[in-house]
Structure formats: C-alpha cells, structure tokens
C-alpha cells in the first residue's frame, strides 16, 4: 500500500512539472508596433465617391473588377454596402449635414489596428501585425473558424462561404505583399484622383490631420477617428460631421482584445492556477484514499 502511495505522489509531481514546461514554450504571432508604422489618412470632405479605389483594389487582388466605367454608377449608394469576399473596400454615401446637395462618401476597409483583435483572437496565429503597420492574414495557417470575424470591432474580415474547399478570409491587406512591404503605396491611394487618401507615417498623418482641423475649423468636425479608437488604428479619418452620422461604430478607446488577454494570462501565467487546482484535488483524493484504507 505504501508503495502505491509513493508512486501516486511521484507521478503527480512529475506530471505537474512536465505540464508547466510544455505550456511555457508556446509562441504568439508577430505583433509589432513600430514607431515608424505607415498609415492612410482619409479625408472624407475631399472624397467625391468615384469608387476608383474599389476598382484598383479588385484589380490589385485579382478579384473580378469589371470595366472601370461601371464604377461611375452611383445607384449602388442607395443601400449600405460592406466589404465582403469579392470587394475588400467599398464606398458608402451619407447625407451631408451642412450642404444637402453634396452627399458625404466614406471609403471602408480594414483599419489595421495598432492592437488588433483578430491577431489576439486567431486560434492558430494566422493574423499578424507587420512592422509597416499592415495587419495581414496567412493562408497557410488558417483553419476557417471565423473567430477573427467575431472579434473584429469594425466587422471587416469576410469569409468565402461558397467554397467547399480552401475558403479564404478576405480583408484589406494594405497591399502588403506586392506594394507596401517593398516601399510602394497601396493601390487605392495611388489611383485616388482627388487625393482624398494620403499615405505616410502614421505619426506624421496625425500631425497633418490636426493641422488641417486647426486651419479649417469650419470644414472639419474636431475629431480624428482612429487616433485613439481601439487604442489607435493605422487608417485615420477626417470628416465634416459627427462620425456617428457616417455609420462609424462606437468602439471606445481601449484595445479591442479588451479583457480577454489579461483573463487568459491570469489563468495561465506560469501555469500556476491549473497546477494548483490539480494539486489541491490530488490532495483531497489522497486524503480520502488514506481515510478509506484506515477504515479497512
């Protein structure tokens, strides 16, 4: 009997150690927050809703783009559109608070958060935040669980629901592979005929935006969306009216992963709580076994 009790404790200790060791060696995805990260400033007061950016984006990403003249059709503005598996960026139109005849058009795409929820959420680390600010998705890792879509505060990642095999998560990738990682500028910024989109270092864009607001207080609503939202995004927006009237979500200024990472890390820090629970239950079990043996 004594022998079995000793093996019991030995195994218990051994297992706890190996379990603790195994957990420590785990990796987290690339999540770099470089001071020199790039960004895009969208000035919605300049945008004319020509949708050339939609065309350029599709052409760049080998999606069916159609003819560039089709994009002059303004009837698509009648209903709200969202980025999906066939369009990584879309432009929506909203009534102008100041001037009825000049509606406001707003380009929507991935905001490339500084603290992305998708990077934190992804079960296999398929999302990463690159040095230049881009948040990109790695096809070779994805298992298609769509937790990134649940997590994203801006409701951006889209899924290819029609595909039975190798469905992709589709979202703006900041033209990372062919352009921005090689010092180029994103396709949408390049094509924009009115320079509503400005590509540059994020901290410079923030300064530029505040300079614009200071110079033209009548033109701009005094808020730079993305400067503090979800603790900062690479894409920044200026508007002539309240962002709520332009369908921008109310996301707060805390990082989007919120409390999940602290909770997760509290449970697993050095694997102490699970091992402690294991030891506690093991102790109760051992005492019970002893009591029973004494009775017998």
């Amino acid at each position: 009997m004594d022998q079995s009790r000793r093996t019991f404790l030995k195994t218990l200790g051994l297992v706890s150690f190996s379990a603790a060791g195994a957990k420590k060696s785990k990796a987290t995805p690339t999540n770099i927050l470089s001071d020199d990260r790039m960004g895009v400033l969208v000035d919605t007061t300049v945008c004319i809703g020509c949708r050339r950016c939609e065309y350029a984006c599709k052409a760049e990403h080998n999606l069916p783009a159609g003819d560039i003249d089709d994009y002059n059709d303004r009837s698509v503005f009648e209903r709200l559109r969202r980025p999906d598996a066939d369009a990584l960026t879309v432009v929506n139109q909203y009534p102008n608070d100041k001037e009825d005849r000049l509606p406001v058009t707003v380009k929507v795409q991935c905001m490339h958060c500084d603290h992305p929820a998708c990077v934190s959420a992804c079960i296999v680390g398929a999302f990463s935040k690159q040095k230049n600010g881009a948040v990109i998705w790695d096809e070779s890792r994805c298992i298609g669980c769509r937790y990134c879509m649940v997590a994203c505060p801006f409701q951006i990642p889209a899924f290819e629901y029609d595909k039975a095999i190798e469905p992709k998560i589709m979202k703006c990738d900041f033209c990372y592979e062919n352009r921005t990682s090689k010092g180029g500028i994103p396709a949408c910024v390049e094509i924009c005929p009115v320079e509503a989109l400005t590509f540059g270092k994020r901290y410079e864009l923030v300064q530029l935006a505040h300079e614009k607001i200071r110079r033209n207080p009548d033109r701009y609503f005094d808020h730079l969306f993305g400067e503090h939202e979800v603790a900062g995004t690479s894409w920044l927006y200026l508007a002539g009216q309240d962002f709520k009237s332009l369908d921008f979500p109310d996301v707060g200024t805390d990082p989007a992963p919120g409390a999940t990472e602290p909770i997760q890390h509290a449970i697993f820090k050095f694997f102490v709580p699970p091992v402690a629970l294991y030891a506690l239950l093991g102790g109760i079990m051992w005492l019970g076994k002893q009591n029973r043996e004494e009775e017998e």
């Binding site: 957990k23 785990k26 990796a27 987290t28 995805p29 990077v119 934190s120 959420a121 992804c122 079960i123 296999v124 680390g125 890792r141 994805c142 298992i143 298609g144 669980c145 769509r146 937790y147 899924f159 290819e160 595909k163 190798e166 469905p167 992963p257 990472e261 997760q264 697993f268």
Partner: peptide
Amino acid sequence: GRYYNIWHVPVMGNSNS
C-alpha cells in the same frame, strides 16, 4: 471552413487566443 487543418491547432497555437 478548413476542417482538414484542425491539426494546426496543437502545432501552431496562439497562446493569446
């Protein structure tokens, strides 16, 4: 969506997730 990649979970797991 990519059920056949389920083995990625123990291999590539993201401990923040």
